[in-house]
Design a protein around this nucleic acid. Sequence first.
DNA 1: ACGGAAACCTGCTGGC
DNA 2: TGCCAGCAGGTTTCCG
Length: 304
Amino acid sequence: MPELPEVEVVRRGLDDHVVGRHIETAVFIGARVARRHQPGPTDLADRLRGNVVLGAQRRGKYLWLVLEAPDGHRQCLVIHLGMSGQLLVESASRPRQTHLHATFDFADDGPQLRFVDQRTFGGMALVDLVPDLAAADLDGGSHPWGVPANITHIAPDPLEPAFDQAAVVARLKARHAAVKRCLLDQGLVSGVGNIYADEALWRARIHGERQAAALSRPALRRLIEQAREVMLEALDQGGTSFDALYVNVNGASGFFDRSLDAYGREGRPCRRCGTLIRREAFMNRSSYSCPQCQPCQPWPRRAL
DNA sequence: ACGGAAACCTGCTGGC
DNA sequence: TGCCAGCAGGTTTCCG
């Protein structure tokens, strides 16, 4: 999936091309894209008509459009891109993509917003906004309209003001799970996926199978800082994309794949020490690391 | 609390 | 050439 940097690239595109516009019609193709909106796609389309888009917000890998109805009622359209979702801003006259699932037309002469999703793990729903408890003492933090009621279990991501690094380190210190599993836990720190977890671990010289609680506080601090750093650098490059699946709203790819140090580099030399990068199975997916820089010290696990 | 696996999908690749 | 297993950047949910 798109991880935090790729989702932020999309959010900025929405900020530039969708915020301020009035939705005239929304069309959902098939039932799957709105499967989390219980009343169904027709109801969702009906409710969206006539709303003005006040803002485009993000926490971790979740995006939402803040909407205001003609009667002043505010809600939001929560969007998750899943593994392959794309939001594209383009003319309604452009040919329809094979995996087009939704279109939004606006009450102006501008382009359409389209949702295209090959694997259909992505989706959207109309949800109430609730106060952001994570930013209670920050005057709303970066979410002045609040956060979607259905993602209150998602922790702040390392790029928002509400992110509390010391609190995350303290929680990691209490976790007896593998540290990579913790990094991928969106309820602990959001936005980090398989690529940036491996990159942060490589930069911090920690093997993902190390027990979180067994790592020193400085090491954990370093890891969180590196996760933030690598995602910021990726954002500067327009995100990571190996193929045309991960693009901004204009359909353009980012370039951070050229800067990856670990992910996808099996058998190639570590850029620090020259040792060949290894690939291991972990959590039903792949992990890449340097055997020299990131020694594996698994702990004795409880017998089954 | 933790680890593992499966579910939800389509498409591409590599080996036979 | 064709078929099929395996793999892909995510989340949720269940089981032991």
